[in-house]
């Protein structure tokens, strides 16, 4: 209970700080729109088969923009050695991770909700065919990105090449979740019944979230204590 209270306080602090400065929110949102725009130029958006790769396009934009958000997760604590104060505070490493991951997840979810109608307009896709299932996939895939991104943000925060190393480590590790989210989103954009392997991809995504959240909660203390 105490861990959750601390996590909520850290998440609220991060969200307030981000909403005041909007340092990663604006750049992340505009970047995801730019990615959607550029990919729209690369593909024939008028064709029927856009639903076959629509999920891929959408999640690529989300994945690129999420790097900008999680990159700031721990980096914003570096000036004035705030990270040392946070680590020395009564809040455990797990609550610190959970708070930062929840804040990143909330920011990402906001961007996803804004990008979804833009994607529908740019690519001429009916995305509201299965709204609740799509929301579920967005939440599960978004949590995977926030969880992995926050852990790797902590891992790379002190590196000289932080901006380069974070996506290099994060994307390969995220591929199972991204692949599952892309496939599930494609299925949800298509008209008709769900393919038989829908449940298999969903299980993979849920399993990924559970495994990596557990690992992150167990190991984040080790990463943060110097």
């Amino acid at each position: 209970m105490r861990t959750l209270r601390h996590a909520a306080a850290i998440a609220w602090k991060d969200l307030r700080s981000e909403l005041r400065t909007k340092e990663s929110l604006n750049s992340s949102l505009s970047f995801s729109v730019v990615v959607l725009l550029l990919l729209a130029m690369a593909f024939d958006t008028g064709s029927e088969i856009v639903t076959d790769y629509g999920g891929g396009i959408l999640w690529l934009a989300f994945a690129f923009s999420s790097t900008l958000i999680v990159n700031r997760s721990f980096a914003r604590e570096m000036p004035n050695d705030c990270i040392d104060v946070l680590v020395a505070s009564p809040a455990s490493g797990a609550s610190l991770f959970l708070g930062k991951a929840v804040a990143a997840f909330a920011l990402q979810s906001g961007i996803q909700l804004i990008c979804l109608p833009i994607f529908g307009v740019f690519y001429n896709v009916t995305w509201w065919r299965n709204p609740w299932q799509l929301l579920g996939v967005l939440l599960l895939g978004g949590w995977a990105m926030a969880c992995i991104g926050t852990v790797f943000s902590a891992l790379t925060v002190n590196l000289r090449l932080r901006e380069l190393m974070l996506p290099m480590l994060m994307y390969p590790m995220l591929v199972p979740a991204l692949l599952a989210s892309m496939t599930l989103t494609n299925y949800l954009l298509m008209p008709g019944a769900m393919p038989p392997d829908f449940a298999q991809w969903l299980r993979l995504l849920i399993g990924f979230d559970i495994i990596f959240t557990t690992l992150a909660l167990a190991l984040v203390e080790t990463i943060l204590v110097r």
């Binding site: 891992l155 590790m173 199972p176 495994i211 990596f212 690992l215 190991l219 080790t222």
Partner: peptide
């Protein structure tokens, strides 16, 4: 070491 543990999932 932390990354190696994460990587083993793959």
């Amino acid at each position: 070491s932390v990354l190696s543990i994460f990587a083993y999932v793959s």
